[in-house]
Nucleic acid binder design. Structure first.
Length: 298
DNA sequence: GCGACACCGCATAACT
DNA sequence: AGTTATGCGA
DNA sequence: GTCGC
């Protein structure tokens, strides 16, 4: 939460809106969420540390594209196989990023291993890539990895579900629609798979924000609703929209909060026909899909 | 060799 | 029925 | 997966 004022600290809600094609997400931030955590101290490093701001690392072209490409494939396979261990995944991404930025041709795994972020496992793979041009494991499972990536694009489908779909033999997103075990969120994700990829131009998002703010004002003039995230950062377009809403009398307490702050708003927006599909809904979080109203200027 | 690598709310499944 | 675990998004 | 203890 940016600029956590006293107001934000005691009571906060976020609303995420996406349009035309649109989605609204509303969350109430808890005190814990905006409390800055402890800083970790960095230690000495004997390995060569990657610093993207250093002139030394400024490389316009990737001199090791064969390596990073193969590693990218291996990373995807690992993700598919292990249903996405986030730490392993990050380790691969980090290594690929470093090698891509490396301003010289890598001629051995040992050379790469000197870099902080590249250990023996990736060093060995680099040797294999340099020797054979690829990794053995890549050849057989390439298609699975690609399908895994495709299915992962669906909102509500994570590594576990994506892997399940691959194992079931599905070949396209349209195949997923018939799966008997889809969650509601996944059904919506399939329905709006293209929709979710659309960006919301700034001007359009502003209209949405004002619309929500007007509805909020009508509920109670004391309500406060402000845009966050991409809008706050003045981006020309965003792929989603968040709002934080609150009220002077509101305090976020899971045990006592009846959730009315959020529900009053979403009920009103639903009655107006503004909200359509409800992705999820709770006391602290409310996600919905919404359509622009026919003839409306927003 | 072994834990850290950020955290949390919600929906749903898997428990008891 | 209530409780805990898992998957997911961000 | 890599790193640091």
């Amino acid at each position: 939460m940016l600029g956590a004022t006293n107001l934000m600290r005691s009571h906060t809600q976020t609303s995420h809106i996406r349009l035309k094609r649109t989605f609204v997400v509303v969350t109430v931030a808890r005190e814990k969420f905006i409390t800055p955590g402890p800083k970790k101290d960095t230690k000495k490093q004997k390995k060569i540390k990657f610093d993207p701001t250093d002139e030394l690392w400024k490389s316009d072209i990737n001199l090791n594209e064969d390596i990073t490409k193969a590693l990218g494939g291996v990373a995807l396979l690992e993700k598919e196989r292990k249903s996405g261990d986030p730490f392993k995944q990050r380790a691969y991404e980090n290594a690929i990023y470093i090698i891509t930025s490396y301003p010289a041709r890598i001629i051995s795994g040992a050379e790469a291993k000197k870099l902080q972020g590249i250990g023996s496992s990736i060093a060995n793979k680099i040797d294999e890539i340099l020797k054979t041009g690829t990794c053995e494991s890549l050849k057989e499972k390439q298609e699975d990895a690609e399908l895994f990536e495709t299915f992962s694009q669906v909102f509500g489908v994570g590594p576990v579900a994506a892997k399940r779909f691959v194992d079931k033999g599905y070949k396209s997103i349209s195949d997923l629609a018939n799966d008997p075990d889809l969650t509601d969120m996944q059904r919506l994700g399939i329905k709006y798979v293209d929709d979710f990829k659309l960006m919301i131009p700034k001007v359009e998002a502003q209209g949405l924000i004002h619309y929500v703010q007007d509805v909020l004002k009508e509920l109670s003039p004391a309500y406060i609703g402000i845009a966050c995230d991409g809008h706050r950062r003045e981006l020309s377009e965003t792929n989603s929209l968040y709002m934080a809403i609150t009220h002077p009398n509101y305090t976020s307490s899971p045990s006592t909060d009846p959730g009315r702050l959020l529900l009053d708003l979403t009920d009103a927006l639903t009655d107006l026909g503004f909200l359509t599909d409800h992705i999820s809904s709770g006391i602290l979080k409310y996600w919905v899909r919404w359509e622009s109203i026919e003839g409306s200027t927003i």
